[in-house]
Nucleic acid binder design. Structure first.
Length: 635
DNA sequence: ATACGACGGTTTTTT
DNA sequence: ACCGTCGTAT
């Protein structure tokens, strides 16, 4: 192919620097792009997709695996902008791609056709149910709670490590319950089978099982010529297995990442995987991107100084492409209330000077760090949008609604029954349990609990019976309605009075449900509406109906985890002091301190021009002590 | 016996 | 927001 013709037809290649272009146009074996923060990683990956497509690779034979759905959407959109033919590139998270594959091979895996997908909250609810059934809830010794149980379980799956090792290394305080936990996990697996559901970890496990199959494995891989994986520093061992399986059966694998932005260790991810990539994929070409186009040098100097303190890391320095800049500032404030006022003042001041809210962000270690700031912003009527933290699907009323949707698809989902029955006033956990037991029959699991309602309803306290009847009738009607929109509407209508009664702000909460109903109207695949909701959860109620209005100016508040890959002119990082950031939970090992340090690094490198870190002197009247990370910045 | 409101202590980060 | 506990109403 003539070089001249190439650049003529692909002006976007001209805009890349030599390293970026080398990566985008690499032809041959596996490719690893080590791309520091702000070095044009997304640009390069999009250009590579566009280059592949314009070189004749059919777009549907390209698989783009990203960490979040948002990243996938953004990249596909940009690639389409460069080369319209990129429109059929298959993109998504590991989990959403797994769902597609597992769905297609459900029968081979022994799963029902319309199997459900449990999100983290649902999985925890199943574990809680089993925990209760096993009598751990009322035992003398403190037994780990559902959230901890799920964390432990997920570790064993994602790190592919036996339970005893996981407990010893990460959860030593529950070691006295090791046997009971082991038994609980066995019943968890069995229960999921009975319910005909998968949790998020199962999706990856099933994908790997398919990949390992002699017939199916090679066929899955043969569907693609190229597999591109974003944020490779955040994959775990299970995901590495998937990548390697694909790579060994045909497709060329391209991975992009930065070992110093690995911040998902708690999910069993490890930066070791990106460093092992050349070993796992023989013949790998490594391209390193170091020129930073995002930030000014003073911002990078501080980030580099922080990075240099890591116990274990591969030395690298980001060099700014842009001139000038001001030094990042550390601002001392008395307490969290003062921090809220101070940050709010500074943001408004910057807006006065012409910096729109949309080019400013407030980042925090935990979603909770911004509570007071959110109150202050609301008080002063400053519009903001919060990412991370409590998710839409985790709100109690949304879970109520989703549980009814699940019941319509799967009458055997006892976790959903347990939740939905208790919405009826006067019907509590004890009665709900009895009713479910009666509906499922003593010996044989009846797949459809609805059929046994006539007799089971006797167990409902008389005062609640009529209301429960209405709920059941609505479920029957919903089942008769195949279209997801009207179906969701019917369920919303029957839940409406119950939710208004249960929650003091019920009217507001109902509006959230309205948005879910309108999302249901637009559902492409009615059978999998709920599963897709779980895999692509809207970050807030506003995201469901439409993306936020583009003409509205609003501030972004986000956890650093949710801010990955994004950038703003001005960034505030809240509450950087020992015990909060680094979190006290991380105080134990140098690796966990390193991960906290990398997290701050990710936060700082989101800033283009202005970076302010706040340090709080006291908390609830108690002095906070040092701030290790701020001392390391060399400011 | 069961349901439920009130109260106080706790909460990392996410597909 | 969640969890466990306790007192009160049914």
């Amino acid at each position: 192919m003539a070089v001249l013709a190439q650049t003529d037809e692909r002006p976007w290649l001209e805009e890349l620097n030599p390293e970026q272009r080398a990566a985008a146009t690499h032809d041959g074996g596996p490719l690893l792009i080590l791309a520091g923060a702000g070095t044009g990683k997304t640009t390069t990956l999009c250009a590579r997709v566009a280059w592949l497509v314009s070189s004749g690779v059919p777009s549907e034979r390209i698989l783009l695996l990203t960490f979040t759905r948002r990243a996938s959407r953004e990249m596909l959109q940009r690639a389409r902008g460069l080369v319209p033919a990129s429109s059929r590139v298959l993109g998504g998270t590991f989990h959403s791609v797994a769902h597609r594959l597992v769905r297609r091979h459900a029968a081979a895996l022994g799963l029902p056709g319309g199997f459900g997908v449990l999100d983290a909250g649902d999985a925890a609810d199943v574990l809680d149910l089993l925990r209760e059934e096993a009598g751990h809830a009322r035992s003398k010794t403190r037994f780990p709670k559902k959230g901890t149980l799920l964390d432990i379980y997920s570790r064993t799956v994602n790190a592919q490590q036996p339970l005893s090792g996981v407990i010893e290394e990460f959860f030593p305080w529950v070691s006295e319950h090791r046997e009971a936990i082991s038994a609980l996990f066995r019943s968890y697996t069995a229960r999921k089978r009975e319910l005909g559901v998968c949790d998020l970890d199962d999706l990856l496990l099933y994908w790997r099982a398919l990949a390992a199959d002699e017939v199916i494995g090679p066929r899955l891989a043969a569907a693609f010529d190229h597999v591109l994986i974003d944020e490779y520093q955040d994959v775990n061992g299970l995901q590495v297995d998937l990548a390697r399986s694909l790579g060994s059966h045909g497709p060329t694998v391209t991975a992009v990442g930065d070992d110093f932005q690995a911040i998902y260790g708690f999910r069993s991810a490890s930066a070791a995987h990106i460093l092992d990539f050349p070993e796992h994929f023989p013949g790998t070409r490594v391209v390193t991107l170091e020129r930073n186009y995002r930030s000014t040098q003073p911002v990078l100097d501080a980030a580099n100084a922080l990075a240099a303190q890591a116990q274990r890391a591969f030395p690298k320095r980001l060099r700014a492409d842009r001139e000038g800049g001001v030094r990042p500032r550390v601002v001392w404030v008395r307490d969290e209330a003062a921090q809220a006022e101070e940050v709010c003042d500074r943001i408004l001041e910057a807006r006065e000077q012409g910096m729109e809210l949309r080019s400013q962000a407030v980042l925090a270690r935990t979603s909770h760090d911004s509570d007071l700031l959110e109150l202050e912003l609301t008080r002063r009527r400053v519009p903001f949008h919060k990412y991370g933290g409590l998710r839409y699907l985790e709100a109690a009323h949304v879970k109520d609604f989703v549980a009814t949707l699940r019941l319509v698809d799967n009458g055997a989902d006892d976790v959903a029954w347990f939740r939905v029955l208790q919405l009826v006033e006067g019907l509590g956990p004890v009665s709900a349990r009895k009713v479910i037991a009666a509906m499922s029959g003593e010996l044989e699991a009846v797949p459809d609990r609805l059929a046994a309602w006539a007799s089971a309803r006797q167990l409902v306290p008389a005062a609640a019976r009529e209301s429960a009847d209405a709920l059941i009738a609505a479920l029957r009607e919903a089942r008769a309605e195949a279209r997801p929109g009207p179906r969701a509407e019917g369920l919303r209508d029957v839940l409406a009075p119950l939710i208004r009664l249960r929650y003091p702000d019920g009217v507001l909460r109902l509006q959230d449900l309205d948005q879910l109903v309108s999302a249901a109207h637009q559902a492409t695949d009615p059978r999998h509406f709920v599963a897709e909701l779980v895999l692509d959860p809207p970050s807030s109620s506003a995201d469901i109906a439409q993306p936020p209005h583009l003409d509205e100016d609003y501030l972004t508040i986000s956890t650093i985890h949710s801010a990955k890959g994004l950038e703003w002119d001005s960034v505030h990082v809240l509450a950087v002091y020992d015990g909060n950031f680094p979190a006290c939970m991380a105080a134990g090992t140098s690796e966990s301190i390193d991960e906290e340090r990398r997290l701050l690094y990710v936060g700082m490198t989101r800033a283009e021009d202005r970076l302010v870190l706040t340090r709080v002197r006291e908390r609830h009247g108690v002095p906070t002590g040092g701030a290790q990370f701020l001392d390391e910045l060399g400011l």
